[in-house]
């Protein structure tokens, strides 16, 4: 259950990163389509909401939120590292 929460959370953060032009370019190495941004953002927040639910179900009302926030720290960091890492291959990262 906790593993599910972490994966869904990772998907959520990754989608949120993709909803930003800068990170889309870093991660996908191509220009984003203008219509995709809102969809990515919506899907990202939806995934995060689902992961909150999964966390609460797995660890309860007291420890669920602690788990969610504690793992969010690591998962968001991984997305940041991924984006910064992938940006290097691109001559004009910005």
């Amino acid at each position: 259950m906790l593993i599910t929460m972490i994966f869904v959370q990772a998907a959520g953060f990754l989608l949120l990163a993709l909803s930003q032009k800068y990170h889309y370019r870093n991660l996908m190495h191509r220009a984003p389509q203008s219509s995709g941004q809102t969809a990515f953002r919506f899907a990202g927040f939806a995934a995060l909401a689902v992961s909150v639910g999964t966390g609460l179900q797995a660890e309860g009302m007291q420890f669920g939120p602690i788990w969610w926030l504690a793992s969010a720290n690591v998962v968001a960091l991984l997305v940041l590292v991924l984006s910064a890492w992938r940006a290097e291959g691109e001559p004009n990262g910005r």
Binding site: Q20, H23, A76, V79, L80, S83, A84, A87, E88
Partner: peptide
Amino acid sequence: FKDFFTFRR
């Protein structure tokens, strides 16, 4: 929010 995932090396 805009710079949430941003790290410029």
